[in-house]
Nucleic acid binder design. Sequence first.
RNA 1: GCCCUGGUAGUAUAGUCCGGUCUAGUAUCGGCGGCUGUCGCCCGCUGGACCCGGGUUCAAAUCCCGGCCAGGGCGCCA
Length: 438
Amino acid sequence: MDTNNSDWQRTHYSSEVKPELDGQKVTLLGWIQEIRDLGGISFIILQDREGTVQITVPKRKVADEFLRKVEALQKRFSIGVRGIVKKTQMTPRGVEVIPEEIRVFSTATSQLPIDIVGKVHANLDARLDARALDLCREENIAVFKIQHTALQAIREFLLDKGFIEVFTPRIIASATEGGAALFPVDYFGKKAYLAQSPQLYKEQLTMSLEKVFEAGKFFRAEESHTRRHLNEFVSIDIEQAFASAKDVMKLLEQLIQHTCKTVSEKCQRELALLNHRLEVPTLPFKRITYDEVLADLKREGVEIPWGEDIPTPAFRKLGRIHPYFYFIVDWPTKSKAFYIKPKDENPEICEGFDLMWSWIELASGGTRIASKALLIKRLEEKGLNPESFKHHLQAFDYGMPPHAGWAIGLERLTMMLTGKKNIREVTLYPRDRFRLTP
RNA sequence: GCCCUGGUAGUAUAGUCCGGUCUAGUAUCGGCGGCUGUCGCCCGCUGGACCCGGGUUCAAAUCCCGGCCAGGGCGCCA
């Protein structure tokens, strides 16, 4: 065993080994995905982050010592291979590598907990129990490369539009925002909580940095048991000074289009591997009012009293009518958070919106209240105590600009981009009501 | 938290309805052996399982009760 590779630098990733390199010496580092030993000849599939390449060992032509080393190899051994690239008609990729030297960096147990080549597909629960190994499967590497590409595209887009990336606290003092339950933590003997959203902080930042965004983990202590909820998730939040819901909705749909376009261009191999066709949406997205939603649902035989939230089965029906992206606007004020601005001409409805993808809520946002008096009124109407918000309210004494923003769930976006139906599939180490490990 | 369905080798499943040749089948996987062009390699041998606890019965993987766990759905999710 060779426990370090300091004198061996990788010259190529597997995907870079091409027929044009015929005759050239390469150094490859990675893992054994599969071995097919035919007796006189052995085929080793070497996997790295970028794909796989075949290492071909003609056993009768190699030295005994080298042969013994090859015979001892097993699936998932971490190895280095130094050898000569050979152009060939006999592999799907048109190349193979004839090894001259092999180093074993690390071994693996012979009986793996899940099949990594996809012959017998393990259930999600078994896969999550062996997540480190599960993530080695090419399908999972594809999922997380797509997520990475999407996040890069989003950053690029927002930076280009003049947004400044910020970091707000994850540990907060007050649990009085209402709504979602918070996880308590002990903060030097004081009671504190894990943040459920950067909402109040990002609003305050519009009076200094004007246009901000944050991509970060947030926590909700809800006992949800669905395919689209996690207790720890990534939220991409923006907030913009001197802007309204209309402005940030435009920004959001452009960002979605840009992200889909970038992923469909840069991740063709990954999308093909996942057998997923990603459509780049055309703009603008449909804007459907809450009243229109109720009317759509009524035609489907579902009657919802005005002002009520839309239950999940109704959203599913709605998703069948509007199968792709659409906004729902003009929500009843009472169904949205206290900081969403009621319409001036009709305070019963508000300037909040949801971005839907079929039946799933991808993002939500709106124009925020910039008036301290109105915000206090709304807090009271929601049964919240303005005293608990005094630090936030104080910001409104120093020139809070009109502002608007939204938050999009990165995992839900990734589900859309990859075609995965369970949010746990697109989360490296998911945390849900029943899973705290690994 | 509620409802439905399920829990059988490392993994994925058959068997369960209707209890008894089930000594629990198959695939994949692991081990051993053979094989020079595989790419779901092939062939032979071999290893490995009825979630836990209680009950019914001559007899339980199979029926009943409780627990735990999982999948789906609902609720919750400013």
